[in-house]
Amino acid sequence: MLSVTPDTAIAVPASVIAAGFSPVADESRAINGTVGDITVADPRMTARNVNVYYGDKLAINNVSLDIGKNEVVAMIGPSGCGKSTFLRCLNRMNDTIDICRVEGEIRLDEQDIYDSSLDVVPLRAQVGMVFQKPNPFPKSIYDNVAYGPRIHGLTSSKSELDDIVEESLLKAGLWDEVKDRLDETGTGLSGGQQQRLCIARTIAVAPEVILMDEPCSALDPIATARVEELIDELREQYTIAIVTHSMQQAARVSQRTAYFHLGELVEVGKTDDIFTNPRHRLTEDYITGRFG
């Protein structure tokens, strides 16, 4: 699927429609109104019947979804469909917004992350996050990557910390570009490098899951390609959930795709199936470009 060009990815369903294919063929398999199988064999995180409110406004309506081990799940949908809100629930970043309230159950390896006894600080060490806009701290490249290990007390010596920084930058594919200027400020890098620095910063604390909120939306095509490659490489070690605005990107990097619409999870399935054979009319309309 990774080699599929954008053109063909969209062209396929269009021809299917032309053949008179019914948009929702298999209503019986829908759970909570979601078409497709929300579960996976080996889940890392499981979300069940999640509702999110901003004040009185319902932003996420009854969403259930598994995120499997060592897979990349892409969340797509039009602006304001709730995909970012859902992503931010997975490491409780929504806690920082006063008026935001989350109902339902989200588990990380059987542990309910909204349990009142659960501590968000170690949770966020386990479930890291990469943001839409590259947001390196105005510190040196080294200090950016070392920030997480330092605050969490992961290392006991300088050399250990050096190792973690180098390893993280290596994994993020940035080491060769910055190894001679680790003391320079992180904000001086190019946009793509900054985003990879942010990824390095996230993996420096050895998370299990990495959440990515439109990580390429502020990058140019070449930098985007580089980050996408990186995501594919990281999949071997981490579980990744990525929100993206670009269907092509979802098609290129993910194994499963979830389509959100107006706060509901409309359809989920293997990426190949979703793009070649969408079963819900809304999904089909979206990926064929009728709206969004």
């Binding site: 600080v121 170690p122 060490a125 386990q126 969490h152 007390g153 992961l154």
Partner: peptide, 16 residues
């Protein structure tokens, strides 16, 4: 490795 990391995180948590 993951468990080792989380142990370290939890070790300093009270202090933090």
């Amino acid at each position: 490795e993951q468990i080792r990391t989380m142990d370290r995180v939890n070790a300093t948590l009270k202090q933090r």
